[in-house]
Computed example of a mutant assay.
Amino acid sequence: MLDFMEHVQTAFYQASHWDVDNSYGTLNATARALLDFQTPRGLRLQISSLAAPNFATSYTLGSVGVVDGSVSYLYSSLPLTREFRTSNLDLHHVIRGYRHVQELRRPDEDWWWEIWHGGKRIDRRDTLLYGRIFLPQSTLEALYLRRLSPTRQLKVTAVSDSSLKNGGTILALLQGDFGKYSTEYMYSTDSGLLGFRGLYNFGPDPRVAPTVSVHDVGERAHGRFSAGAELYYGVLNKSGGISTGLRFTTLPNHAGFPYTMTLTLNPLMGNLSSTYSVKAGSNLALCSRLDFNFYSYESDLQFGCELWRRRNHGDVEWAIKKLRPDWKRPSAARDDDVSGILKARVDNKWRIGVLWEGRIKELLFTVGASLDLKKREQIFRAVGIELQYSS
């Protein structure tokens, strides 16, 4: 589940018309949401507030062996109007689940952002500032996010920690979203890392207005094929890397069940990964991932699922009925009456992860556990619960 500040940042992306899915970095977002979810450790409580449409605060207290916590503040020059109170927010905004990739959006024209008054331009670019300090270790992290134009944004993250080399690190990303394709230039002070990412979407170009006819409406594409690559090089340690990936995903106008397939390859390391995710019903999603290294011939296989729970149903009733696909209802439609989600994963080494996320009255909760069935002396690797309240 997203914490409060992550939720605010996603709201900023939406309000500023930034498509987070049109990026090489989110190529495997669906599989990661279904298979790579983090199970909590110990007890953690978070209390947050959007004091004004432009300002948010959050306080976290945890207990994993020792008592720790954090204090964070966020400022957005763009007023955020999404509902953030835990009693009223849409759970789909804070729970990572199957990602329905939307139609590509035509980027705004530059002049749409211009605001003139008395013959002078008075518009400013939207900016988000975020800072967080962890106690008692006094680690500090910060984020600077600025929309430079309708197609570009600058993202700078920094971490200050005495345990890191040179006392901290800074990562700068110059991101571009042009609808048909996206780019990302990266620089990190860690090893002087330089990098580039790119993603290209095959099919219609959203920047070009199509000639619409009755025949064209019936022949609209129901899926999208995307291809991308990543290249990076460390100036200080003289080492680099490269990866490439493919994705096919159905679009909201697809009549059948939504699904996503990806294939990624890192030729230098010899890693090959393929995933298949399917929304088998309005409440059920399934995912599988196969990782293979063609140098060592080692492989890993994972399976995962998520099951949404609706309100006003008994535990036994929803567990049985929601396993049956509801074909009468569009699979990609938003469900307003959900109260929680159950996630589970297992791999070929019998490592299991279980997560239950939802809302009780005024609180969001996350309960989870990770198990290793091959270690009989200590099957439970981690057990925890997290509680969130925001106003």
Score class of each variant (00 low, 15 high):
Met1Gly: 07
Glu6Tyr: 03
Glu6Gly: 14
Glu6Phe: 02
Glu6Gln: 10
Glu6Pro: 00
Ser16Met: 10
Asp21Gln: 10
Leu27Phe: 00
Ala29Thr: 07
Ser63Val: 05
Val94Asp: 04
Tyr98Trp: 01
Arg99Gln: 14
Val101His: 06
Arg105Tyr: 10
Trp111Arg: 08
His117Thr: 00
His117Met: 05
Gly118Met: 06
Gly119Lys: 11
Arg121Tyr: 05
Ile122Thr: 09
Thr127Leu: 15
Pro136Gln: 06
Thr139Pro: 00
Leu140Phe: 15
Ala142Ile: 03
Leu145Met: 08
Leu145Tyr: 11
Leu145Cys: 00
Arg152Thr: 13
Lys155Thr: 06
Lys155Gln: 09
Asn166Gln: 14
Gly167Lys: 06
Phe178Arg: 08
Gly179Ala: 07
Tyr181Trp: 07
Tyr181Thr: 03
Asp190Thr: 15
Ser191Lys: 14
Gly192Pro: 10
Arg197Trp: 04
Asn201Ile: 02
Gly203Cys: 13
Pro204Gly: 03
Pro206Gln: 04
Ser213Pro: 06
His215Ala: 14
Val217Trp: 15
Arg220Gly: 03
Arg220Asp: 04
Arg220Gln: 13
Gly223Lys: 08
Ser226His: 08
Leu236Gln: 15
Ile242Ala: 15
Ser243Pro: 01
Ser243Asp: 05
His254Lys: 03
Phe257Lys: 03
Thr260Arg: 07
Thr264Gly: 03
Ala280Tyr: 10
Ala280Arg: 12
Leu286His: 04
Arg309Ala: 15
Arg311Phe: 01
Lys321Ile: 02
Lys321Cys: 09
Leu323Asn: 09
Ser339Glu: 15
Lys343Ile: 06
Arg351Cys: 11
Leu355Phe: 06
Lys361Ala: 15
Phe365Gly: 11
Gly368Asn: 12
Ile379Arg: 04
Ala382Asn: 10
Gln388Ile: 06
Gln388Arg: 14
Ser390Ala: 15
